[in-house]
């Protein structure tokens, strides 16, 4: 009914976080590729893209099924008081599940990326020293 609202809320928070982290990294002079880890702004941009991409396509699916409309109150479940309870339940269960699952996949992704960056860095250094 409106499950995509939870990942959307997370996407708004992570977008703001990315902007702040990016600014801090720029001030600290962090350069991409100059360290053994992938920068946090880059990692957060991956999460943002996953979340916003999913939210956009899910919003389209909800419009297709008539659960979301482009005029107030936007959620058709809001028109009937009996539908509000199930809608909130769906947001709390499926919506939270979606946000948590995407975040877990992203955490696995960034840990693999960090491991790969660590493995590449000594190899590149050794090649340069030789």
């Amino acid at each position: 009914m409106a499950c995509f609202l939870v990942p959307m809320g997370e996407a708004i928070v992570t977008t703001v976080m990315k902007k702040v982290v990016e600014k801090n990294e720029r001030e600290a002079g962090v350069k991409e590729g100059s360290q053994t880890r992938v920068s946090w702004s880059r990692k957060l941009s991956w999460l943002n893209r996953l979340l916003w991409g999913g939210v956009l396509l899910l919003a389209l699916e909800h419009i297709w099924h008539g659960e979301v409309v482009l005029w107030p109150p936007f959620l058709t479940a809001m028109n009937n008081p009996a539908d509000v309870g199930p809608m909130l339940h769906e947001v709390a269960t499926i919506g939270t599940g979606m946000a948590v699952f995407v975040t877990i996949v992203w955490l696995i992704m960034i840990s693999i990326a960090d491991q790969k960056a660590k493995a590449i860095h000594p190899a590149v250094k050794a090649k340069a020293d030789a």
């Binding site: 893209r49 999913g54 396509l57 899910l58 499926i94 699952f101």
Partner: peptide, 16 residues
């Protein structure tokens, strides 16, 4: 990322 984001979210939706 757009397609994977939606795929992951629909996977959770389908499983639940």
């Amino acid at each position: 990322f757009i397609y994977w984001g939606a795929t992951l979210m629909w996977f959770v939706d389908h499983v639940m």
